[in-house]
C-alpha cells in the first residue's frame, strides 16, 4: 500500500474542519470550502464567506491553517474569494439531514422556497417566523405551531 500523498492528507485534514457556529457541519458540507490545489509542495486552499461579515471566518481560517500543519504542509496559502457568491443551494442533502438531526431547519432549495418550513422535531409544516434574524448571520428564528418548539432555521441565500 502506498503512503497517502500530500493531497490525500490535506483533503482528509481540511475536510474535517467544522463550522464553529454549527459544529455538525464541515466547511465542505456548507460550501465554504471551494477548492484545494496542490502544486508540488505548495498547497492553496480557497474558502468563501457565507455572509460578508461572517465573524466565524477568522476562526475557520485559523482552523484550516492548523489542518494544513497537521497534514504536514510546509507551504500553504489560504485564499478568500467572494465570487461566485455563496448560496445555500450548494449545501448537500446529506448536510441538510445533519442539520435536521441537530435541531436546525435546513435551507430550502431554490425551486422549493414556497414550501413550508418543517419543524425539525415534529416535522409539522405549521411553523412561523418569529424573527428574520437569529443567533448567527445565517439563521432566523422560527417557532412550531404544533409542538410549540422554537428553533433556528438556516436562511436561504
Amino acid at each position: 500500500m502506498t503512503a497517502p500523498t500530500l493531497l490525500d492528507r490535506v483533503v482528509d485534514e481540511v475536510g474535517r474542519v467544522v463550522d464553529p457556529e454549527i459544529p455538525v457541519l464541515t466547511i465542505a458540507d456548507i460550501g465554504i470550502l471551494r477548492g484545494v490545489i496542490v502544486d508540488g509542495d505548495r498547497v492553496t486552499v480557497t474558502i468563501t464567506p457565507t455572509y460578508s461579515g461572517c465573524p466565524a471566518m477568522d476562526a475557520i481560517r485559523a482552523d484550516v491553517a492548523d489542518a494544513l500543519d497537521r497534514a504536514g504542509c510546509t507551504d500553504g496559502e489560504i485564499r478568500t474569494v467572494l465570487a461566485p457568491a455563496w448560496t445555500t443551494d450548494w449545501m448537500s442533502d446529506e448536510a441538510k439531514a445533519k442539520l435536521v438531526a441537530y435541531g436546525v431547519a435546513p435551507p430550502r432549495h431554490g425551486r422549493l422556497r414556497h414550501q413550508p418550513v418543517l419543524c425539525p422535531r415534529c416535522r409539522s409544516g405549521s411553523t412561523r417566523t418569529v424573527s428574520e434574524f437569529g443567533s448567527t448571520a445565517c439563521k432566523a428564528l422560527q417557532v412550531c405551531g404544533s409542538c410549540g418548539e422554537p428553533f433556528d432555521r438556516f436562511k436561504e441565500l
Binding site: 464567506p49 455572509y51 460578508s52 461579515g53 424573527s131 434574524f133 437569529g134 443567533s135 448571520a137
Partner: peptide
C-alpha cells in the same frame, strides 16, 4: 430582543462589506 439581534446582524453585514 429580536430587534437587538436583527440590528446586530444587519450591522455585521455592513461591516463585512
Amino acid at each position: 430582543l429580536e430587534s437587538d439581534i436583527a440590528l446586530g446582524n444587519i450591522a455585521i453585514d455592513h461591516l463585512g462589506v
